[in-house]
Design a protein around this nucleic acid. Sequence first.
DNA 1: AACTTTATCAACCGCAGGCGG
DNA 2: CCCGCCTGCGGTTGATAAAGT
Length: 318
Amino acid sequence: MGRSPCCEKAHTNKGAWTKEEDDRLISYIRAHGEGCWRSLPKAAGLLRCGKSCRLRWINYLRPDLKRGNFTEEEDELIIKLHSLLGNKWSLIAGRLPGRTDNEIKNYWNTHIRRKLLSRGIDPATHRPLNDSSASHHHHNNQEQQQQQQQPSSLVAAATTTTISFASSVSASASAVKQEQDTITTTTATTTTTTSATCNANMFGIMEKKNKKDYSKGSSMERCPDLNLELTISPPRHLDEPDHQKYSGIERALCFVCSLGLQNSKDCRCGFDTNANANGGTNSNGTTTTTTTTATGAGYDFLGLKTGSVWDYRSLEMK
DNA sequence: AACTTTATCAACCGCAGGCGG
DNA sequence: CCCGCCTGCGGTTGATAAAGT
């Protein structure tokens, strides 16, 4: 016995919405607010299922929706967010005011995918199309598909030092090896991405739900003993071996800058991003050895001083 | 002008998680 | 703890428009 249908399909309209239906929905929500989608159609006098009403409102009728083409800045933001989050369209949409997950998903599939391909970048992995290391890890199509579901940066994030897993992080050697490969075979862009991933976690972008995706995806299968309960802790000291290994990452941009929002009030880098975007080389051409304020001791991230372990769940979405 | 192909995007569907009883 | 309801998400479909032949 299956679950009951969400609505009486025999008595519901499907397909494109009419102007009258839109008006009814708008006036009802204006009067009663959003929510209780299941009962809304009947109350509003609509022959639609609740899901359909919700979708219509969220994707089309909501007053705060931004209309018109995506800007170049939005394009780049979507690309960067996708490199961090994968196909988490709702999370990406949450970072783009006035845009919906459906809109961004469609835009990605129709425009950005091609844009990245034309740049020689695999839209699924955000790695160069001819990057041998990308295919090196994949022994079959199934793994490749899993990789598409899970951006490379997320794999890296699972083992970077800034994010520590609660209790034991018994990440298997294969996962560590994978990240090493990621770091050594990719460009400064990837370095930025990896750092941004850490910050994305701090922002609370990485939500619990992502654990589902890890468990479904390759990470969990490769590392069955990996505890994916996330907490956020201050960066480890430079002396620590792992930190030395990934020191290049730690010097990378803050999340805000990685999104192309340099000089923003939220920027925590506190240094010339251009000079550091190429892997920590300053304008004199000498390698910088100072870490950014974003990773230094006592760094104040979103008003939260480092010094104790944070639970990511306590962070509110910015 | 007629037809075919391609692009776009609104809408649908199934599934999973949260939550309350 | 279990069950069912509700909501939200992501993948997919299909209608329509635009471009090409």
